[in-house]
Amino acid sequence: MVTLTESIAIRLSFQFLLVTMKILEAQSAQLVNYEVYQHLLELRKSEQALEPEKRPPRNLKTVVTELIEYLEAAPSPLGSKPYPYKDDTMSKLFFKLREFKLTKAEILMIVNLRPTKPESLNTIVEEFETRFPDEDVQQRIVDVIVEALGSPDGNAERQAMTDDANQARQDAQDAIDRGDDDHDMANGA
């Protein structure tokens, strides 16, 4: 049964679609990149099972494709081989990092960026040198991270970053050339 007020409310909402949105909780949780990545892969898999005309909206497809690309691009650990994350990786890592009293934000960045030397930790952890003046402790944190997440293949990673940059520059140049050469191409054809 739809009451009169309800039906008025429904009709009003046809006109003011956006107004129907209500934020219940601006931030109910934080996700690490790994969780988002897993969700996107599952989403993509379930999409491919559908018939073309039932595939989800295009704006979703765009952002999912781009985000997966981003999460796999070097130096993200999600794109490195062997794949560093397993189901129990996080809980193990959190457990072992507990003794160092890092903040939640710092642990989040450690999981996402995988710093594997004290200098990289220094960028992520606030007041790193003051809080962990002992170099042995610094090294212990790094060892815990490497043990849980592995360490990157530095050469391959740098090569991938250089290649990506060159490719992007090439694409940009091609786009400019195409724009400029419209006339020539027309003549050539």
Partner: peptide
């Protein structure tokens, strides 16, 4: 980098999207 946001909204489904083929 990513958060979860809880939202309540009115969703309007067109009849053509309401088929046994699309749960």
């Amino acid at each position: 980098m990513f958060i979860l946001t809880k939202i309540a909204d009115l969703v309007q489904i067109e009849p053509k999207h309401f088929s046994p083929f699309k749960p």
